[in-house]
């Protein structure tokens, strides 16, 4: 059976290096299996986050040969015989140890978004499938934060102070497009979440393990809603004359 060569980052942000490991490759093995094999055999203290091993929890985010990906979904047979497999922690968040990073910033951002706000009523909700297809796509998100990691606004420009990031634009889109939601998050998106920082270069969409069309279906529609509110004086006038109600009901 063939062996694979892995280079795994060991250490903290200030002190660390890529260490070499060899792992027996079994059929259907993924990178996370290889990391577990290293843990069980060579280094029980190798730090890695994981839960489900089935791409449902979004815990095992890392960068494999430079590409942000879920280790549980990255098959070892993708690599050629003898190819070196380099496993690094995600870059955008501070390293705690080895492959584990401090993603707590994301949870802080989430708190600031105004939650689901339906109008109070006691009747059964009648909502049709076509009304929620869009929302359901966004709710597939498993919060792996790969989109946050790859987003250059956070990654290269380190604008965590200004930009909420793709994950939370997706969440906001899911709230805004919910047929029963009554809140308006446009001011927030423009002035605090800074949706304008996004230049729709689509890396978030490229790395999303759930295949959510983050840019086309969440961010751009939100940008257009922000335009409705702040950058389209003509449209505002027309809507006023026609008396169109955006929320529908």
């Amino acid at each position: 059976m063939r062996k694979a060569k892995l280079k795994v980052y060991r250490g903290t942000a200030d002190a660390g290096e890529f260490k070499d490991y060899e792992v027996q490759v079994e059929e259907g093995m993924v990178v996370l299996d290889a990391i577990h094999a290293i843990q069980a055999k060579d280094s029980p203290d190798l730090a890695v986050r994981w839960n489900c091993k089935a791409a449902k929890c979004g815990s095992c985010s890392a960068e494999v040969n430079g590409m942000p990906s879920l280790m549980c979904k990255t098959r070892m047979d993708r690599f050629e015989e003898g190819e070196e497999i380099r496993v690094a922690p995600i870059k955008t968040f501070p390293i705690i140890k080895d492959l584990v990073t401090d993603v707590s910033w994301n949870y802080e951002v989430n708190k600031k978004i105004k939650g689901f706000s339906p109008a109070p009523d006691d009747k059964e909700w009648i909502i049709h499938q076509e009304d929620i297809d869009r929302v359901q796509e966004f709710r597939k998100c498993i919060e792996c934060f790969l989109c946050q990691n790859v987003c250059h606004v956070l990654r290269d420009h380190d604008r965590k102070d200004a930009f909420m990031g793709p994950r939370f634009l997706v969440r906001t889109a899911g709230l805004e497009m919910h047929p029963k939601d009554t809140a308006n998050r446009m001011q927030y998106l423009k002035d605090e979440g800074h949706i304008g920082m996004c230049n729709i270069t689509k890396c978030c969409t490229e790395v999303c393990p759930e295949d959510i069309h983050i840019t086309d279906n969440a961010i751009i529609p939100l940008k257009e809603r922000v335009v409705d509110e702040f950058y389209d004086p003509l449209g505002k006038v027309i809507k006023k004359i026609m008396g169109t109600d955006k929320k529908g009901w």
């Binding site: 590409m67 250059h152 290269d156 996004c198 890396c203 940008k223």
Partner: peptide, 27 residues
């Protein structure tokens, strides 16, 4: 900004995306 995914192009905090002139006109 950026040249490819997980590839650093320009960096630093000078970036303002589409929040300022001229790119705000994309709206």
């Amino acid at each position: 900004t950026p040249p490819g995914c997980a590839v650093m192009g320009t960096s630093g905090t000078g970036y303002s995306g589409e929040t300022k002139f001229p790119f705000i006109l994309q709206n």
